[in-house]
Design a protein around this nucleic acid. Structure first.
Lengths: 150, 150
DNA sequence: TTTGTAATTGAAAACGATTTTCATTTAGAA
DNA sequence: TTCTAAATGAAAATCGTTTTCAATTACAAA
């Protein structure tokens, strides 16, 4: 099979199938200059492929992220947890295992901000830095757990 | 009224009232070392104050953020938009007006990561940098709109 | 202390996004 | 062409959040 697209190849490697819906969804996010929500993608996709279901859009997006063809953008809306405010400008270091969080104030993004403003023309007015890792407690537990396994 | 807490003072300044529910919720997030979802806060709060409603938890959290007593943490789960993957390690600059997004690869967080690892003992394995601002298009539109107003 | 009023509340319903279920269809290897 | 695991769409279920509304409450002013 000559001229297979990277997407076709990637799917075959994972024993997944290329379907019309998947192709349409990939085309849409490939051509977009904007991040799109599942609902927006669904609306656009139906113009090209009316019987497509919203369920399939969700499933396809998960697949595209899993295979590395799409990425998620995190926005300010919804999906929050809350933490007491201790500093005016806090970023977070969150434990991916237990959810414990440390706040930190250091963030030297000024150089980055200036670079990107001149490259893109954006007027940048806010930033968010979130670090993820394992807290000391969870590291200890994990080590103990692994030792027990042997 | 002597010995007013900062919370009491802050509420009075905004003509808001101090209620049992609000105090209980603030106490919970003050004592937590972990970020908590509204549902988690609700569960804990009901132990101390059984008739509290979940609605009030949501409203109180909004209030606490508005007055600066709490802050939101952004997590990996839910609330996503999607973008085509063009680089292995992409961060985003998102226009807060139209949603257009630029991807960038520069992120010199190594120094920050090392500093925080030694300070907190965390093993940091991932990070997310999201910048927000206005794209050139939206800046132009906004300027035209403001000029028309005068 | 009492009163008046705007702020706050809880319960229920509405809502929007996402996931699950399940019977049917389909891509693609054999 | 056949066969089977993968994928699908429709409907229902689920989850988190917001809205509505009538009843209650905090607290400033009398």
């Amino acid at each position: 099979m000559p001229n297979a697209t990277p997407f076709q190849t990637g799917l075959r490697q994972h024993r997944r199938k290329l379907t019309r819906g998947r192709q349409v969804i990939l085309d849409i996010i490939t051509q977009a200059t904007r991040h799109l929500t599942p609902a927006e993608i669904y609306r656009q996709a139906r113009d090209k492929y009316p019987q497509l279901g919203l369920t399939t859009v969700y499933r396809t997006l998960d697949l595209l992220v899993e295979l590395g063809y799409a990425q998620r953008v995190h926005l300010e809306e919804s999906c929050h947890s809350y933490l007491i405010a201790t500093r005016a400008h806090g970023h977070h270091l969150v434990c991916s295992t237990c959810g414990r969080a440390e706040e930190f104030a250091e963030c030297d993004v000024n150089a980055l901000v200036r670079l990107l403003e001149s490259r893109t023309g954006y007027a940048i007015d806010a930033h968010m830095i979130e670090l993820m890792g394992k807290c000391p407690n969870c590291q200890t537990k994990l080590r103990a757990h692994n030792a027990r396994k042997k």
